[in-house]
Amino acid sequence: MTTTTGADASAPQRSRLGVATAAGIGVLGVATVIGALQLGLWTALGPGPGFFPLWLGIILVIASVFWGRQQWRGEVADAVDEGEEANGPWRITAMVASIVIAALLLELLGFQLTILLFLLFHLRVLHRVRWLVTVPVVLVGSLGVFGLFDMLLAVHLPTSSIPFLAAIGL
């Protein structure tokens, strides 16, 4: 386990994530500048649609160079490094992917079924929660939440677009 804040801050440590992020932000800045130039910078009345984006792009490019240098030299301590406290890359990928997949399935399978699968994945696969706990949580989280929002609060959550599933109320 490594921490780089507090007392350790005196020992500079290069942050690879920081440098990569700075590079990414630099690219974002350049793309913004290019995009802004196409929008038109000035109009008869004043700043055009591209005026603010242009300056934001320039700020991003310059700031990313300075900040990237700080990260490279390890002058600025990371918030948290990979350690046992923080989620590892695999778990992060799994969580983000599960949300994206759930988002894509939401209007196909409907809210209840999608969230049921989503919760099963999180509780059983990611956290290995006992079935005794998993089952009620999954039911409340999918069917219960749907009932609460859809029926009581009139916030309509999607139902399935597959006729068979829709017919049984999912």
Partner: peptide
């Protein structure tokens, strides 16, 4: 059901259970 809304919120979602009704869909 304003009161039911408040009550349900206070009791979290458990009270609502697995009630589900079919709503119309485009492909019915």
């Amino acid at each position: 059901r304003p009161l039911a809304v408040a009550a349900a919120a206070a009791l979290a979602m458990t009270a609502v259970g697995c009630a589900s009704l079919s709503r119309p869909t485009d492909s019915g």
